[in-house]
């Protein structure tokens, strides 16, 4: 399934790499894309292995606050 997170914490485009790499390493995440311009984080993931809330938690781990968004 695909989950969209939105973060208001990204102040420079290089933040993107850290979040992206971190998310992509998580077991159950197929593909994570982070967009600096809009602050959108798109994650394709296996719902059974990693939940939306765990994704928010993972982004937090890297140092950014985010929330689940409808689109």
């Amino acid at each position: 399934m695909k989950t969209i997170l939105r973060s208001n914490d990204m102040s420079c485009p290089t933040c993107v790499d850290s979040i992206e790499t971190y998310l992509n390493k998580i077991d159950g995440v197929q593909k994570a894309t982070v967009h600096f311009s809009t602050g959108r984080i798109e994650v394709e993931h296996d719902d059974g292995k990693v939940s939306e809330q765990e994704l928010v938690e993972a982004v937090r781990e890297v140092g950014y606050e985010s929330e689940v968004s409808a689109f």
Partner: peptide, 18 residues
């Protein structure tokens, strides 16, 4: 503290960031 945290995250991903 926070800057160091992010720098460390970057290093773990083999990136030298700001």
């Amino acid at each position: 503290y926070d800057i160091l945290l992010r720098a460390w995250q970057g290093l773990k991903n083999k990136q030298a960031n700001i």
